[in-house]
Amino acid sequence: MLGGSVTTGPLTERFGFRPVALAGAVTCFLSLLLASFANALWQLVLTQGVLFGIGAACIFSPSVSLVAQWHTKNRPLATGLAVAGSGAGGMIFTEATQRMMSSIGHKWTLRALSLIILVVAGTAGMFYKRRVAVPRGGTDFRSMIKDPRLVIVGLSGFFVNVSYFIPWYYLPTAALKIGQTRQAANNLVLFMNAGSTVGRVAAAFLAIAIGSINSIAAAYIICAILVLVVMLAVKSMVGYIVLSVIYGGLSASFISIVPLILTTFFGAQGVTTAMGIMNMYCSIGVLIGNPSQGAIYQQFDRPHDSFTAIAIWGFVGLALAGISYISLKVLVIHGTDKRIWSKM
Rank of each mutant, 00 (worst) to 15 (best):
I145H: 06
K129M: 10
G125I: 07
A252E: 04
G195A: 11
G138V: 09
A218S: 14
R131W: 10
A174H: 11
S236Y: 09
F158S: 04
S251Y: 02
V134Y: 08
F205C: 05
G199K: 02
R200M: 03
V134D: 04
L250V: 08
V201S: 00
G249K: 11
L228C: 02
V119K: 08
L228W: 15
I222F: 09
L118K: 05
T139N: 12
C223Q: 00
V238T: 15
L250R: 03
G249V: 03
T139W: 09
N193V: 01
Y240L: 13
V201D: 09
G125Q: 02
G137S: 01
R136T: 12
G239Q: 02
Q183S: 15
T123F: 15
F158Y: 12
V242G: 06
V119D: 05
A224Y: 08
T123M: 14
K177P: 07
S251V: 13
G211Y: 07
I213Y: 02
R149C: 00
L176G: 05
A204T: 05
N193I: 07
S143A: 15
T123I: 14
S156G: 15
L228V: 11
A224W: 03
V234Q: 05
I166R: 05
G157R: 10
S156L: 01
P167L: 06
V160Y: 08
V234L: 03
A124S: 12
G154R: 07
V151C: 12
I241C: 04
T139R: 04
I166H: 00
M237R: 05
